[in-house]
Design a protein around this nucleic acid. Structure first.
Length: 299
DNA sequence: ACTGGATCCTGCCTGC
DNA sequence: TGCAGGCAGGATCCAG
């Protein structure tokens, strides 16, 4: 479920295990994800120390001591799991505090990559649909790399406000839904949070994006509301993800799960949650993707 | 320049 | 119960 908040949640979950550790061994269970793994992928990673774990839009960025960056995109179904070290139990046998081993026998069907760290931790990447991918690139070429060059503004950074949105959307006939999904404008929103942000802002997903730029190019109140709604919904989701992170060892240990309540997403037919609004959440399809909105309070 | 559609892949849910 | 069909949170590419 990786939009920006989920990726940030995964980043925060992985950071303590990954940063400062060396990658002793990398096991690939297949030769590609969405794309083939980079040339000499394993050799370039093994022996490297991870010195930082960052995020840009929906990409995780692991900085390596040698100057390369491991950039990882989770696609639709990518997940990371931390497997804690196995240690000797009271009965003399091997037990594991989190309650599970990671062996060939327990390996999940779509566990494609396993990073074995110097701390004894293993970090497993699982991706059923394989829309995710990993690339290795020099830190110095990050900003000019085709994957990152065109990315738009980071929505939780300081730049995003109504004025910037108005500038980005000026002259665009595309519906707000499509404009917000465009990673070249605002980077990190996905199908869920676009619906959520538009509902909070009281803006119809069908409305032309350019109408938020006013006639003089000045931001409208709608643009200000939308910028605020984007920041609020993402920040709340990140906070919700973080609040459940302490439990990451239970069940299958997958990072990035959280119980965030969506106000409109997947709530077709339910009453609109806006106070005093008598509307009902409708589902529609825009450029092949589900949109959820209330026609009464979103204009 | 913008837009909609097809596409990659697997799993799950629905309806017949 | 079985199975076909549709749908899924991403992002790119292509035709129009």
């Amino acid at each position: 479920m990786p939009e920006l908040p989920e990726v940030e949640t995964v980043r925060r979950g992985l950071e303590p295990a990954l940063v400062g550790a060396h990658i002793d061994r990398v096991v690939l269970n297949r030769k590609d994800l969405r794309f083939p793994f980079p040339e000499r992928f394993v050799a370039r990673l093994e022996g490297q120390e991870v010195i930082a774990l960052g995020r840009r839009a929906k990409y995780l960025l692991a900085d390596l001591a040698g100057g390369e960056v491991l950039a990882m995109h989770l696609g639709m179904t990518g997940r990371f799991t931390i497997i804690k070290p196995v240690c000797a139990g009271p009965d003399g046998g091997l037990t594991e505090p989190g309650g599970f081993y990671y062996t060939a026998a327990t390996r999940g069907a779509h566990d494609h990559v396993c990073f074995e760290l110097s701390t004894g931790h293993r970090i497993v990447y699982n991706d059923a649909r394989r829309f995710g991918f990993m690339v290795l690139l020099a830190r110095s070429e990050l900003d000019s790399h085709p994957l990152f060059r065109g990315l738009g503004v980071e929505p939780l950074g300081n730049e995003l406000d109504g004025a910037l949105l108005a500038r980005l959307f000026a002259g665009k006939a595309a519906p707000l839904k499509a404009a917000l999904l465009d990673q070249r404008l605002v980077a990190g929103l996905g199908n869920i949070y676009v619906s959520e942000a538009l509902h909070r802002a009281g803006l119809s997903p069908q409305r032309a994006a350019g109408t938020l730029a006013g006639r003089t190019g000045k931001p409208t109140r709608g643009a200000d509301r939308l910028a605020g709604a984007i920041r609020d919904v993402l920040a709340e989701a990140v906070a919700a993800g973080g609040s459940t992170l302490r439990d990451y060892r239970q069940t299958d240990g997958a990072l990035g799960y959280f119980q965030h309540r969506f106000r409109v997403y997947d709530r077709e037919g339910e009453p609109c949650p806006t106070p005093a609004c008598r509307g009902v959440i409708a589902r529609s399809v825009q450029s092949g993707r589900s949109t959820f909105h209330c026609a009464v309070c979103q204009r």
